[in-house]
Amino acid sequence: MAGDLFYILVFPGFLFLAVFALIADYIDRKLHAKLQNRIGPPWYQPLADLIKLAAKEDLIPRQVDPWLFKLAPVFAVTAVVTAALYIPIWRHGTPMSFNGDVIVVLYLLTIPTLTFFLGGWYSRSVYSMIGAARSIMQLFAYEIPLFLSILAPALLADSWSLGGMTLFYAHHPWYALFNAVGLFTALISLLGKLERVPFDIPEAETEIVAGSFTEYSGRLLAMFRLALSIEMIVGAALIAAVFLPFGLNLGGPAAFGLYLVKVLGIVAVIALARTVFARLRIDQMINFCWQFVAPVAFLQVIIDLVAKGVIAR
């Protein structure tokens, strides 16, 4: 019981995730700055931002339902931290693993977007409402490709738990190459989920101020920001576990170090993407996701099904 609590609250639960999220946030920002030939923020900047927001007053618009307004960020943080509990870090599976946890993780990762929608929609501000509507529209565009590309490797591994999948790929490392296409589509979908350039449409600063978060301030905004940062590393960890399932056999510190490298590598790719692309429009984003990403993700499913058939014979 105490072990579980430690696992949930401290390591690799909330506390570890929060610290790691801040570090990842720093690396993302520093890299973004370096790529743009700038100096970038000092190492403590993400923490300083968080402290600054936490020290500020929470302003709640008069017309909104204060409960929903306050609960939305809490749900966002809770959902992403919970999702992290099922993702293997230094061994195959976690104490919470069960068959089907990959589906649970995917759905838990959908919850933050829904809280962005609810928080924005009930803010009663035109910018928030447009941002909220865009969040949901975008959700429909990237969710299917993300599900398809994450579940395709599960089909090949014939296991619906992340632990089972990593175990399978540990025994057959070359099979992971079948999923190269899925890695690509999963990364694109992750950009959409994290609302990063080129898919930062729901919070496009120059159009709708801050989208869903326009009316949020103080601790509540800090929680949303933290949720987004944690979602970035959880999403990256999920992709790392599914598509780059190497090194978990090493066990202990080596596997953990490899996990950090993999996650930060994906964070670096995200930072590169937001440096070299312009923001798309919502209609262009939806067209792109349905006309290109979804079919390619579907192709991944077919590849895995065929591979499985060949292997079975």
Binding site: A33, K34, L35, Q36, N37, R38, I39, G40, L272, T275, V276, F277
Partner: peptide, 22 residues
Amino acid sequence: HPGRMVRQVLSSMLRKPATVRY
């Protein structure tokens, strides 16, 4: 093609930042 600036931004990693440290 998308990502036209990839090579340029990656080479920026090695350059001295343009920021003036005033």
